[in-house]
Amino acid sequence: MNTGLTPLLRLVDVDAWYGHFQALRGIDLTVHDGETVAVIGANGAGKTTLLRSVMGTVTLSPQSRVELAGVELGSRRPHERVREGVTLVPEGRKLFPSLTVRENLEIAATRARGRWDLDSVYDLFPNLPLLARRAAGSLSGGEQQAVAIGRGLVANPRVLMLDEVSLGLAPVVVERLYGALAEIASSGMTMLVVEQDVGQALRIAKTVLCLRAGATVLAAPAAEVTAAAVTAAYFGASA
């Protein structure tokens, strides 16, 4: 899978724990500069935990390594990792409900100007300017997800991680959001996308990683992944 690209995010032998429960087992993953990797798997497979291991909000075994552009994130606290250049659009959007849409975006915006700012997010999601002064808690699910994606973008991360963007949203809304994600990807953003909706995931990803019970059961270029292979990996049937 060596394409001559630079590895940007690298996970090596990652074991993650919630107390005595091991949620990830020996995960290896490399995301190259500018590529999109999709992580799929059934509920409870460990997808969210994989993203948390990058943000530093879950306990890892000592040998586990998480590197961003060659820098070991190790003991850094979550907000320091954001400064290093990883941002998570969390599962369930997690907007600040009492803040306005605009404030939700401003809070994550970096002072150092990058490709993404409030204006370019408003261009990407043209309905957001109209909602800018509304409390984020009062928006519909799809609108909230757009704000959550925008909030991730304005941090101008080197790697943008998204957790189940489609969760609980109508297909037409999901379609529109993935259209925006495709635009973001084509702007050169490196992305790690967790998704249950395999069809959408395959649409924007170059590489697919399938997890089952905390372990990798399939890692392949998206173009070579068949529906049968995904189903087999998902449910553990012998392919």
Partner: peptide, 19 residues
Amino acid sequence: RAMRATSDDPETAQLMGLD
């Protein structure tokens, strides 16, 4: 704004780069 966000949801506030 940072105080209100942290009060709303401390864990997510960290994910948005707030100490």
